[in-house]
Lab assay of single mutants.
Amino acid sequence: MPEGSASLQLAVGDRVVYPNQGVCRVSAIDVKEVAGQKLTFVTMRREEDGAVVMVPEGKVLAIGVRKVASAE
């Protein structure tokens, strides 16, 4: 991610809310080559049905992904 860009610090195992998809758990953060460029992807699995969603790390905030609020 370019320096100075806002990002959401995620780790494998974090629970997040993905708008219009529901609650997901981060299952992987991997670098993949797409069209000759190396990009970091956040892979999330929906808790409702296990569907897998992959989002480029740089788009996580723009999409509206946020961490699940704690009970505290």
Rank of each mutant, 00 (worst) to 15 (best):
E33D: 10
Y18S: 05
K32Q: 09
G4N: 13
L10W: 04
R45Y: 14
D30Q: 11
A28S: 14
G64R: 05
R45L: 15
Q37P: 01
Q9L: 09
L8F: 09
E47A: 03
G4W: 08
G36C: 00
N20W: 05
N20I: 04
G64H: 08
E3H: 09
G36I: 01
V23E: 04
E33G: 03
R45Q: 14
S27K: 06
L61G: 13
M44A: 01
G13R: 01
G58K: 14
G64F: 07
V42H: 00
A71H: 11
L61Y: 08
V60A: 14
I29K: 02
Q37C: 01
P56M: 09
G4H: 11
R15C: 00
N20D: 10
V53G: 02
Q9P: 10
L10R: 00
G22E: 04
S70C: 08
A62N: 08
N20E: 10
L8A: 08
Q21F: 15
V12S: 02
M44L: 14
V53Y: 15
R46D: 03
G4S: 13
M44K: 00
R45W: 12
A71G: 10
T40I: 13
V55R: 02
V60I: 15
D14H: 02
A28E: 06
G22I: 04
R45M: 14
V17L: 14
A69S: 13
V52Q: 07
G4A: 13
R45N: 08
L61Q: 14
E72C: 08
K59I: 14
V34S: 05
P19M: 07
V17T: 07
N20C: 01
K67D: 05
M44E: 00
M54T: 14
V17K: 04
I29A: 00
P2I: 12
T40H: 05
K38V: 08
E3P: 11
T43L: 06
V16S: 00
V31Y: 08
R46V: 04
L8I: 10
M44Q: 00
A28Y: 05
A11E: 10
T40F: 07
V34Q: 05
G22K: 04
T40P: 03
A6Q: 13
S70D: 13
Y18P: 01
V65Q: 04
V23M: 09
G36T: 02
A6N: 12
S27G: 03
V42N: 00
G50Q: 04
A35P: 02
E47T: 03
F41V: 12
S27H: 08
S70L: 11
V55G: 03
